[in-house]
């Protein structure tokens, strides 16, 4: 039930361990970490910078997390999303869900990252070694991934 938006890196092991510590109702913990990678499209990627909308970002992440809590029986959940400049290999985002049940932990975690990618106000700008910058375009595959989780009672968007 925690959302954090921060510039600094996070300690993956510490975050995950804290999520289930002392809770004996947790049977499964699923987590996803997104990292900056060297991409075929931008072979000379030097870094990327994530801009966000302070205030609305936290509000949207909290709403996404509340939706996951409403849909699945979760004992704990966590979203940590960084902003600012990051180089290849650095961690960008962590989502994690703990549940009594393996399937719930998996589905809720998958849902969180899919929805986050289409709803949380973050924008990536890539910086090449030659100094150029390029705003990353939204991908239709992300919309398709998020659409899987739509239900009939969701408001149209």
């Amino acid at each position: 039930m925690t959302v954090r938006v921060q510039r600094e890196d996070f300690d993956l092991g510490a975050e995950l361990t804290a999520l289930t510590a002392g809770n004996r109702r947790v049977g499964g913990l699923t987590s996803f970490v997104g990292l900056v990678r060297d991409m075929a499209e931008t072979p000379d990627l030097a870094a990327m910078t994530l801009e966000h909308y302070p205030g609305m970002t936290e509000r949207m992440l909290e709403r996404i997390e509340a939706e996951a809590q409403a849909r699945w029986p979760l004992e704990a959940s966590l979203i940590v999303h960084r902003y600012g400049r990051m180089e290849p290999g650095e961690q960008i985002v962590l989502v994690a869900c703990a549940s009594p049940h393996r399937e719930a932990a998996f589905e809720a975690c998958h849902f969180l990252i899919d929805w986050l990618k289409t709803k949380a106000p973050f924008w990536k700008v890539e910086e090449s070694r030659s100094g150029g910058t390029n705003w990353v375009e939204a991908r239709s595959s992300d919309d398709a991934a998020a659409a899987r989780w739509h239900r009939d009672d969701d408001a149209a968007e």
Partner: peptide
């Protein structure tokens, strides 16, 4: 009122 392109976080 905020104006921005489609989001690309995560």
């Amino acid at each position: 009122v905020a104006l921005f392109p489609p989001v690309t976080g995560g």
